[in-house]
Write a protein that binds this DNA or RNA. Structure first.
Length: 570
RNA sequence: AGCGGGGUGGGGUAGCCAGGAUUAACCCGCUGGGCUCAUAACCCAGAGAUCACUAGUUCAAAUCUAGUCCCCGCUACCA
C-alpha cells in the first residue's frame, strides 16, 4: 500500500562556519546528505525546498579577519562567495544558500528574540568574564590559554585541558594569557541575556518522545541532556561582529552565533519564498503540520538541533514546526586521524574536485557515509570503491548493455517476443530494488541506498552472464532481443535511481538513452516505465574510468593540488 | 570523571531497538572454475568469524542484563 507523502518537504543542512573551507567530513553529513535526500523527494514529486547558508558571525571570524588585516565582513563576503561556488561545483541543489548577514535573516532573528523575551523566557544577569585590555575585547573560554592547575600543561585552554582532559574555568588557569596578543587578561563584569531553557524542559521532552522519526542515537542523547537538567544559556555575546541584540539595554551586544545560525533555517525559507514572489509560502513549511522538515548534521551538533532550535521555536510562541527528523552522522577520519586544518589532516572540498570528478566523490562519500560509527578515509578504500563498484560493476553493466544494443540492434531498443519467467523475475527484482532504495532514502539510510543502486547493476550483470545473449544471437536472435529489451529496462531504472547520488552521470545517461528533458526533471516512478521497442539510443561513452594510481601517487597529487590552490588568489 | 555511540571473517560495513524461521548478511581481497557482449570488465563456487572480554537471564543471545578493556564524540562561553 502506498502511503501518500506530504507535499511539503524542507531539507536543510548544518550551516558551515566559514572561517575555513569545509573538508570532506563536514560535507558528507550535512550538504551532501541533504542534497541526495532533496533530489530524491523532488523526483517523488514533492514540493521540496532545500536551504542552508554560511554561518559567519562570532569571535573566531573576527579574529581571523584581524589576522588578515581586513574587516570581518570583507572576510565573510569572500569566503561565502567561495564556499557557495564550491557547493555549486559539488552539485548541491540548494534552493537557497544564504548567509547570516542576510537582511531578512537579521530581522527575523531580532524579531524572534523579542517574541521570546515577551513570552517570558529571557532574563538578564551580570557575569564576570575575562577581558583583554590590549585587544579591547572579551575572550571566550577558548581564547584564553595558560598552565593547567591539575597537570601543569602549558597550553591548557580556558574550557578544558587538552592533555589531562579535565574541564576548567578560565579563571582557574595559572598565568593565563590572551591567545590573540599573549598579554594577561583581566576580569570584567558584563551583563548578558539568557534564555531559560529549564522552562521548556517539559515540552521538549514531549516533543522528543513523541517524534517517531528521530534515530535512536539522536533521541537518547537529547533526552539525556534534558534529564541532566537544562541550564540557562546566554543568547548575547560581547562581540562586535554579529546581529545586534534587540533587547532594551543590550546596546553593543550581539546574538550568540548558535541562536543566530539555527534560526536561519526559518529565515532562509522566508527569504527564498520572497524571492519566488510568494512571500507567504514559507508558512506551508513551517506552520503546516503535515510538512516534513529534515536536518542533516554532524554528531557534534545534535543538541543545537534537538534542544536549542526546538526551544527557540517553542519559546517564540509562533507554532513553528519542530524538526521532523534530524539525521546525524559520525565523523570521517583521515587515515585514522581526526581532520585538522592546522595540521593539514584531511581533504578539503576544493582539493577533492581538483583530483576526481564530483560524482566519484559523491558516490564514495555516500557509500561510506559514517552512519553508525566513525569511518576512516584512505585512498585505497577510495580506489576500491570507485574501481570495483562504480566503474566495474555499475559502469560496465551499463556500457556492455548499451554497446551491444548499438552494435547489434542498430541502436534501437529491441522488440521482445516472449517475456518468460526468468525475464519477469529480473524485472520484478529491479522493481523491488527501486522500492528498497526509496525506503532507504526516506529513512536516511543513504549508505544502504547507494549499495542498493549498485545492486541493481549486479542483477543486470548476473542476468546477462546467465543468458549469454551474445551466443543466442547466432541461434535464437528473438530471444537475444528479448534479453536486451529487459537489460535496457534495468539501465533505465538505474538512470533514475542514480540521479540523487551521481547527478551528472545520471544526466549523461539520460541523454545517451535519448530521453526528453532531464533526469532531474523526471519522476521516481519513471524508473519502472519501460523504454519502448524501436526507441533509438545514442552510442554510449564510458561513464567512469578506473583509477590507475596507487596511494602514494594520489598523496603526491594531493600535495601538488594543495600547492596550486595555495598559490591562487583566494 | 560523567553521559552518549561504537568494537562483527585479512580489510571495510549491515544486522542489535521489537532474542529463534539464515547455514551470522553484503562489498573488497584470497583460491578454484566459467564466460568472452563489455573499460583484462562480468558471473559461479569455495576457504575464512570463539559476533571485544567476563558473568548472567532464557528452551534459545551478535541481539537482553551487569561488569571489564579499547576507540570516538559531547559535557552547555569554540562554532
Amino acid at each position: 500500500m502506498e502511503i501518500p507523502l506530504p507535499e511539503k518537504v524542507l531539507v536543510t543542512s548544518a550551516w558551515p562556519y566559514i572561517n575555513v573551507t569545509p573538508h570532506l567530513g563536514n560535507l558528507v553529513g550535512s550538504v551532501l546528505s541533504a542534497d541526495v535526500t532533496a533530489r530524491y523527494y523532488r523526483l517523488r514529486g514533492d514540493d521540496v525546498l532545500m536551504v542552508s547558508g554560511s554561518d559567519e558571525h562570532g569571535t573566531p571570524i573576527e579574529v581571523e579577519a584581524l589576522r588578515q588585516g581586513i574587516t570581518p565582513k570583507e572576510l565573510t563576503d569572500r569566503n561565502h562567495a567561495r564556499v557557495a561556488e564550491l557547493f555549486r561545483k559539488w552539485d548541491a541543489s540548494f534552493d537557497n544558500y544564504t548567509r547570516t548577514e542576510s537582511p531578512v535573516h537579521k530581522l527575523f532573528v531580532q524579531k524572534t528574540l523579542l517574541e521570546i523575551q515577551k513570552n517570558g523566557y529571557i532574563f538578564e544577569q551580570d557575569t564576570q568574564m575575562l577581558y583583554c585590555l590590549d585587544d579591547q575585547r572579551f575572550l571566550p573560554d577558548r581564547f584564553v590559554e595558560g598552565k593547567c592547575p591539575y597537570c601543569g600543561y602549558e597550553r591548557a585552554r580556558g574550557d578544558q585541558c587538552d592533555r589531562c582532559g579535565r574541564l576548567l574555568e578560565p579563571t582557574m588557569l595559572i598565568e593565563p594569557y590572551c591567545v590573540i596578543c599573549k598579554t594577561t587578561p583581566t576580569v570584567k563584569t558584563t551583563r548578558h541575556w539568557y534564555i531559560d531553557l529549564s522552562k521548556l524542559a517539559k515540552p521538549l521532552t514531549q516533543y522528543l518522545q513523541d517524534n517517531q522519526q528521530l534515530p535512536a542515537n539522536v533521541k537518547n542523547f537529547s533526552l539525556n541532556w534534558i534529564k541532566e537538567g537544562l541550564k540557562p544559556r546566554a543568547v548575547t555575546r560581547d562581540v562586535e561582529w554579529g546581529i545586534p541584540a534587540p533587547f532594551p539595554g543590550a546596546e553593543g551586544k550581539t546574538i550568540y552565533v548558535w541562536v543566530d545560525a539555527v534560526l536561519g533555517y526559518v529565515s532562509a525559507t522566508i527569504e527564498q519564498c520572497q524571492r519566488m514572489g510568494q512571500p507567504e509560502k514559507w508558512r506551508e513549511y513551517w506552520l503546516n503540520k503535515q510538512a516534513k522538515t529534515l536536518y542533516f548534521v554532524g554528531k557534534d551538533n545534535i543538541p543545537f538541533h534537538t534542544i536549542i532550535l526546538p526551544a527557540l521555536l517553542l519559546a517564540s510562541g509562533e507554532g513553528y514546526n519542530l524538526p521532523w527528523n534530524v539525521s546525524a552522522t559520525e565523523f570521517l577520519q583521515f587515515k585514522g586521524e581526526k581532520a585538522s586544518k592546522s595540521q593539514r589532516i584531511g581533504i578539503w572540498i576544493d582539493e577533492a574536485l581538483e583530483m576526481f570528478p564530483v560524482d566519484y566523490w559523491r558516490f564514495f562519500l555516500i557509500a561510506t557515509r559514517p552512519e553508525s560509527k566513525d569511518t576512516n578515509f584512505t585512498w585505497s578504500a577510495f580506489i576500491d570503491k570507485i574501481n570495483a563498484d562504480l566503474n566495474d560493476t555499475f559502469g560496465n553493466f551499463i556500457h556492455r548493455t548499451l554497446s551491444f544494443i548499438v552494435s547489434k540492434f542498430d541502436g534501437e531498443i529491441p522488440k521482445p517476443t516472449k517475456i518468460d519467467k526468468d525475464d519477469e523475475a529480473i524485472l520484478q527484482s529491479i522493481k523491488e530494488k527501486v522500492e528498497t532504495a526509496a525506503q532507504e532514502l526516506e529513512n536516511s539510510k543513504l549508505q544502504s541506498a547507494a549499495n542498493t543502486l549498485i545492486g541493481i547493476s549486479r542483477v543486470g550483470n548476473q542476468y546477462l552472464n546467465d543468458k549469454e545473449p551474445w551466443n543466442l544471437m547466432k541461434t535464437d536472435k528473438e530471444k537475444a532481443a528479448t534479453i536486451f529489451y529487459v537489460a535496457a529496462q534495468v539501465v533505465k531504472a538505474i538512470t533514475v535511481v542514480s540521479a540523487p547520488f551521481i547527478p551528472e552521470t545520471a544526466e549523461q545517461l539520460w541523454h545517451t538513452l535519448n530521453l526528453q528533458g532531464s533526469a532531474h526533471k523526471s519522476n521516481w516512478d519513471e524508473a519502472l516505465k519501460p523504454l519502448e521497442p524501436r526507441h533509438k539510443i545514442a552510442k554510449p561513452k564510458p561513464l567512469f574510468h578506473k583509477i590507475e594510481d596507487d596511494e602514494a601517487k594520489l598523496d603526491e597529487q594531493l600535495t601538488q593540488v594543495r600547492a596550486k590552490l595555495a598559490s591562487q588568489p583566494k
